[in-house]
């Protein structure tokens, strides 16, 4: 025996009765919205108020970059260009010179980039950031390859991440940092 023994194939003969109050209520809803200030932001005159985690464009803080190439290798569509050369610094006390990599070129081709953010995730020294800038359209597809000077400018607009909500699980790095300071103390 079926759980529901109503004949489902039979359509109801009359539509359910309505009191008509819903019609009045609907008019109230639209009127209430009309009297509220509208939420439109007049973009070119008025800059949008974006949240701190906005994923607008990927910015580079050059001082943090160690030229490890992790970003360019992880990039799924190969849009990151990195050129570097090696410099050797003679130690003051003598002995073997200390070599380090110097970044010559760091460019991201935004015509290819799909904004997956993997480069930002893999960067071990926090050199890459999500910046809330979005107004970097160009007139030609070739001009969409932006060099490190431009990428550096975009870091100026990066906001500190908002504090975690109450009860949220902290990031693993923060856990480690907290443990470190506890150990030192």
């Amino acid at each position: 025996m079926a759980v529901d023994d109503r004949d489902v194939r039979k359509a109801p003969e009359v539509e359910p009765r309505s009191t008509g109050l819903g019609l009045i209520k609907g008019l109230g809803v639209t009127l209430k919205h009309a009297l509220r200030p509208s939420i439109t932001q007049q973009y070119p005159q008025e800059k949008p108020d974006l949240p701190p985690r906005t994923r607008g464009v990927i910015a580079l803080k050059e001082a943090n970059c160690t030229v490890c190439y992790k970003c360019s290798r992880e990039c799924p569509d190969w849009c990151i260009y990195i050129d570097a050369h090696k410099e050797t610094h003679e130690p003051a006390s003598g002995g073997k010179g200390r070599s380090m990599k110097v970044l010559d070129r760091f460019a991201i081709d935004y015509a290819l980039c799909m904004y997956c953010g993997i480069c930002v995730e893999v960067c071990p020294f926090d050199a890459l950031f999500w910046s809330p800038r979005f107004d970097y359209a160009e007139y030609g597809i070739a001009e969409l390859t932006h060099e490190k000077e431009r990428l550096e400018e975009w870091t100026y607009k990066v906001l500190p991440p908002p504090p975690l909500e109450v009860g949220a699980v902290p990031e693993p790095e923060e856990d480690a940092a907290a443990a470190d300071t506890k150990g030192a103390a």
Partner: peptide, 10 residues
């Protein structure tokens, strides 16, 4: 204008 404001637009 009325329709826009009722829909939260300008």
């Amino acid at each position: 204008k009325v329709m826009a404001h009722m829909q939260g637009r300008l």
